[in-house]
Design a protein around this nucleic acid. Sequence first.
RNA 1: GGCCCCGUAGUUCAAUGGAUAGAAUAGAAGUUUCCUAAACUUUAGAUGCAAGUUCGAUUCUUGCCGGGGCUACCA
Length: 600
Amino acid sequence: MPLENGILMELQKILEEKVKEAVKSIYSADLPTAEFQPTRKDFEGDVTVVVFPMLKVVKGNPVEIGTQIGDFLQTNVAEVGKFNVVKGFLNLVVADSYYLDFFNSIHGKQNFGYQEPNSKDAIMVEYSSPNTNKPLHLGHIRNNLLGYSVAEILKAAGHKVYKTQIINDRGIHICKSMLAWQLFGEGETPESSGLKGDHLVGKYYVEFDKAYKAQVENLVSEGIDRKTAEKEAPLLVEAQEMLRKWEAGDPETVALWKNMNGWVYEGFDTTYKNLGVDFDKLYYESDTYLLGREVVEDGLQKGVFYKKGDGSVWIDLTDEGLDEKIVLRADGTAVYMTQDIGTAIQRVNDFPDINGMVYTVGNEQDYHFKVLFLILKKLGYSWAEKLYHLSYGMVDLPSGKMKSREGTVVDADDLISNMEETAAEISQELGKLEGYSKEEKQQLYRTIGLGALKYYILKVDPKKRILFNPEESVDFQGNTGPFIQYTYARIQSILRKANNVRLSAVETSIGLHQKEKELLKQIQLFPETVQLAAENYSPALIANYVYDLVKEFNSFYQQVSILGEEDKTKRNFRVLLSKKVGEVIRDAFRLFGIDVPERM
RNA sequence: GGCCCCGUAGUUCAAUGGAUAGAAUAGAAGUUUCCUAAACUUUAGAUGCAAGUUCGAUUCUUGCCGGGGCUACCA
């Protein structure tokens, strides 16, 4: 992976060559690769060469080998100043001038760390993909934030990206809300009720469930077997009938469906806007649920699938350690898998430059996607190799799983406004905002509240499940979004106060404070961190990075005077350095969709 | 039963096979005549258990124990 102006990488390349040279000239042996790592804080040095792996090629005592190589590097590499060897670790001290050269090469540069789009191939990132029968909850928030962030990270890593979602706007669950509204709604609308559209529809989904359960209990008390009662409760039968009518295109049913879905979309749009996520292309399941059947026919010809006696079509994946999986029902209708096969192909037809897709879907569907990807591969699509299931853990409450039907969910809209309120409370207590208008303050509370929420979710490894306790609100101190935003605001304050900043190159002879050097080392890691986050589809890596940077900066800020420095050259450099740190914070947070404030 | 994911301080999170396992919170103790104390500094506290591979294992392998998930002609 070529790195944009990776001066460190160049240094590492030089060092790699020189280490090999050293091994060659001292031991007459060929070293395949040299292993480097940043020197740990407790030791003196900047870059560490790990000696242990060399023992395969060179026999001897690791400390002696390290020392000999260190000597060689010191005399043959200008950037290497001192060195020391601890156990099998050769710690190299890199000259200040090297880091200052690096700084000069990037300090005026916008979008440091981001790659220019350099790939002809595009990646489609799917996320959100809600059902249209209930409002979004905390689980969707995780999904949205992850999908959005991974899309932005991929862009920053130089990929072209299309963000998309497939809206599950049809099916029995939608009919349930529709039916309940018909039965109990008395014509209620978002306008008449004052409820957000998605919340109104969700209310009837819950109503349905209540009424349905009551019916089942009644039937059971009349002596009917529970399983039968659950299958034959009149409400359910009616909902199924409604689905049949919908599929047959019954005008009245379709009109009701359009109307209620319209309410939901309005509600979703508000939530998406509040959350700051967006999409380039929407797919609706009502348009795609019939897709995929021709492909199955095709696959039958090719022998990828086989037909059972009853006419249903299957794929046998037992050779891959998986099961047999149905891809078409006996009556010829599509199942979930059929649809997903069809939709994937449809997307590539719509956007021919797609070569890779990311599906942001919970880990409960790990198996489904494993099978889906395998099927597409067997069908011979070249892009099937580049499909990725961005699988994430559920967000659970202390009481267990969130269940919409039982009302045990943390509602997305509620949570967002709670976060804003908390931000407002803390802000007012601290009272640092004189001169801000009401609107500016409100905007700031939103920035901070959302920053706290987004960072809280995104800093966790996607694979891990999150236990969310609504009683303990999301923190605003420590390793949090507001902590990082605060550091940014402090930097902006310095920049406002600093006069006569010269943007010209910094003299490389000024000599660095240890804290300055640490900051430069950390800044230097930004481009490769973005790449790594993209390769691993992991916003958490960016979070760890920016947190380390900010901690380092705060420590620097505390120990080193910036504006109070008398030496003008140093003062100028420190202001520029602070500015750059601020830019990296801003650009890293942009990958999360988190804004940074000028003051807070 | 089969398959998949996860077990790290009281709690929430880190650690491309590398050094003395890092932070944050909660606890204890400090720092505002000084660029914003949502900060900084100090302190105490953890790898579920048992083997194996390795110079070296939180990381890889196997077994066990715990938690979650999938195993639908639902989506």
